[in-house]
């Protein structure tokens, strides 16, 4: 039992299980699955699908935070990537002619969107590594300017994507499962594999735990940190594609709004220390699922969905205080007081 409680994924797993149990009680059909037209449907499948963009962004964020960084521009990068893809695919609804065409080949549009997202990430990384800015300041710049850039790309319009194949990214099914969820799971699994098969995971942890010692031990932190920011930007780009495909449009103002905050929350919930070093990609994925399940729960409880923010804030406060040594010391002192 003790070992179980100490397991680093115990708390995220427990939280998720409790949330699902709560839903199952309120809504008896919650746990049901249905196999229709060769696709799997159900509330849980839906949660998996909807959590995919957040899980992707949070995966990149996890690695950046693990190496003592932070990227608050991911929401803006999501908007940029969505805008680029939407504008390049474009397409118009021509009545009578059901054959919608894309302006550029879809693969080119996707590659361009991802390339620009990667460039955004590398820009952040260059400011942190090259110029030596604090991560929050460096990424604040793109956070401020990014949405302006996205609006520049879309010309201030909400661009509707009529090209049907593009909808597959966010709404399609692969082997009966939602494609976005499969994609997110694959990315997380591949990242995990990359980190454990190469020494990169070890380097990231060493840089996060003790940057000075890592440097003396001969680890070249600069290229690694740069790559992490680039990767974070790239994954935000993928998330942007999924989001825009899902709603078949790109809204430069609102796509990925507050996503950076949800991503940080998911990372924290998954047991990654905000101070760097210790990290868990699986924990982050669980964190993303918790946030999405919470949203679903609030809908099904009939509470106005906007109140979700207050619940998220409460979660942040709890996790933050539990991570603070001063707070824990205070609790221990309270518990030791005679009569308590």
């Amino acid at each position: 039992m003790r070992a179980l409680v100490r397991w680093h994924l115990f708390w995220p797993c427990l939280t998720l299980a409790l949330l699902i149990a709560l839903n199952a009680v309120v809504n008896p059909g919650f746990l049901a699955f249905e196999w229709r037209d060769g696709h799997l449907y159900g509330n849980l499948v839906d949660i998996l699908n909807r959590a995919a963009p957040l899980a992707l962004v949070a995966t990149g964020m996890t690695l950046v935070i693990a190496a003592r960084g932070l990227d608050i521009s991911v929401g803006a990068v999501v908007a940029i990537s969505a805008a680029v893809a939407a504008v390049m695919i474009g397409g118009s609804l021509s009545l009578g002619d059901a054959e919608a065409v894309s302006r550029f080949p879809m693969w080119l549009a996707i590659l361009a969107a991802l390339a620009i997202a990667l460039a955004c990430g590398l820009w952040n990384g260059a400011l942190v590594v090259g110029v030596g800015m604090q991560p929050i300041i460096a990424t604040l710049i793109l956070m401020v300017a990014g949405r302006g850039v996205a609006q520049l790309v879309t010309g201030g319009q909400i661009i509707t994507i009529y090209y049907p194949p593009y909808a597959y990214l966010g709404n399609g099914f692969l082997a009966g499962l939602p494609f976005a969820a499969v994609l997110a799971a694959a990315v997380i699994a591949l990242t995990q594999l990359l980190l454990s098969r190469t020494p990169l995971g070890l380097y990231v942890r060493a840089i996060g735990i003790n940057p000075v010692a890592a440097r003396i031990a001969g680890i070249r932190a600069k290229p690694i940190t740069l790559a992490l920011y680039g990767f974070c930007g790239l994954l935000a780009g993928v998330a942007g594609l999924i989001v825009s495909s899902n709603v078949r449009s790109a809204d430069a103002n609102n796509a990925g709004q507050l996503l950076e905050l949800d991503a940080i929350l998911a990372v924290t919930l998954g047991g990654t220390a905000l101070t760097g070093g210790r990290f868990s990609l699986v924990g982050t994925a669980l964190g993303a699922l918790i946030i999405q399940t919470l949203t679903t729960t609030i809908y099904s409880l009939g509470v106005p969905p906007e109140v979700n923010l207050v619940f998220k804030a409460a979660l942040i406060f709890i996790v933050m205080l539990l991570q603070s040594p001063e707070f824990r010391a205070g609790i221990v002192r309270l518990a030791r007081q005679p009569g308590a």
Binding site: L127, M133, A138, A145, G148, Q151, G156
Partner: peptide
């Protein structure tokens, strides 16, 4: 267009931070 405001603010922010 109005979004140029945001972009210019971002550029100024960048210059000042550097």
């Amino acid at each position: 267009s109005s979004w140029w405001t945001r972009i210019v603010i971002g550029i100024l922010l960048f210059l000042f931070c550097v």
